[in-house]
Computed example of a mutant assay.
Amino acid sequence: MQYNPLGSSGVNVSRVCLGSMTWGLQNTQSDADQQIAYALEQGVNFIDTAEMYAVPPSPDTYGKTEQIIGNWLARNQDKRSDIVLATKIAGNGLEWIREGSNITRQTVIAAVDDSLKRLQTDYIDLYQLHWPNRATPHFAKQWPGMLKFTEVDTLQQTADMLDILEGLNDCVKAGKIKHCGLSDDTPWGVNQFLNLAKEHNLPRMVSIQNEFSLVHAKDWPYLIEQCVHEDIAYLPWSPLAAGSLTGKYLNGARPEGTRWTFMQRNGIFRDTPNAQQAIKQYVELAHAHNLTPAELALAWCNKVDGVTSTIIGATSMAQLKEDIGAFNLTLSDEILGAINRIFRQYPMPY
């Protein structure tokens, strides 16, 4: 296993980050225990979760993933220091979480305390804002005309960010969290947080996790360039595009028990004609070179310059072994050239 610095934190994390959002819905405590044990054996030291999980989110599954991790930690206290544990505070819009309110100084403090209880730990290594208070061009909202940036109250948003940083600072000073990060944000958001932290001597964001894959690489090059030069770890989530890059959803297929058979609060926005065509070609390319489609997609993501650690997720041990194994692969120039030709044909298929 290879390791990279987690931005400016001074902490090293494995190139593979074990995602956990299926634990508590598609996966049981026993499943999670097995996944954690195997990942640690392979050198993975980075685990990501969120108070909102399991996914798809619901009042019934809220907090369950953190509870599952907490149960494991309670039985494996000697391994706590070996793990870089990351979790996230949910943003606005979910009525069963703080009545759908914005992230504020006070909600950060309360949410950190609640996560610590569920996780059964004294500290969180990386505490992330799951999404900003403002609407951002993620989750298929990146197309022109879908958001009106000119209608955003810049001063209010900046004031909100300062308020949030003060809450994070309270938690850092109390020893409850060590480092802070972002999720589903943009270059403007990153820049504002960095400037405010420097101006007011508040915690500096050390990472950002955004969706990034062969079929959704809109953060390249501008946000990733910023991350490299500002020493911020870039952490791709959904490198298999919610499982679609495995090819299992081609031609309308919906295998029993898979993610796309569960409720999707935003619809299955990744399922477009262009995405189907792109994925079909990636699947054929992988098979032509004796690779699985997942291996192709994950090995490519791991190779992208500026990527720190890729967040994977699996609902079976076979999937987990395949996913982690992909990070030991080196794609040939021939395969990379073929990927590039498909990518140029379908640069943003959903």
Rank of each mutant, 00 (worst) to 15 (best):
I89V: 15
D160V: 03
V16S: 04
Q142K: 04
D60W: 10
N210Y: 05
I103G: 04
K198V: 01
T292E: 02
T261M: 01
E256G: 01
S244Y: 09
I268R: 00
G93R: 06
K218N: 01
F212I: 09
K303Q: 15
Q276R: 11
P347E: 07
G325Y: 11
D113I: 07
D122A: 11
D114S: 15
L298M: 10
D82E: 12
D82Y: 07
G10T: 09
H287V: 06
E99C: 10
I124Y: 06
L291C: 05
E95H: 11
C171N: 07
G100S: 03
R98D: 15
Q192V: 14
I324V: 12
N76Q: 09
Y127A: 02
V172D: 02
D122C: 05
A233P: 09
R344G: 06
L6M: 12
H179D: 08
Q345W: 05
A111W: 12
R105I: 07
Q264E: 13
Y249G: 00
N195M: 12
T22N: 03
V304M: 07
N266D: 14
G93H: 10
W143N: 09
A37W: 13
A197I: 14
L162K: 07
T104G: 14
F149G: 03
E225F: 11
A90E: 03
G70R: 06
D185C: 09
A159T: 10
R75H: 15
E199M: 08
G306W: 14
Q35W: 10
A297I: 01
A135P: 15
E225D: 14
I47N: 01
A90M: 11
M21S: 14
P293F: 12
L182I: 11
I279N: 00
K303A: 14
A197W: 06
K148A: 06
R204D: 00
V172E: 10
A275Y: 06
P203R: 04
S332V: 08
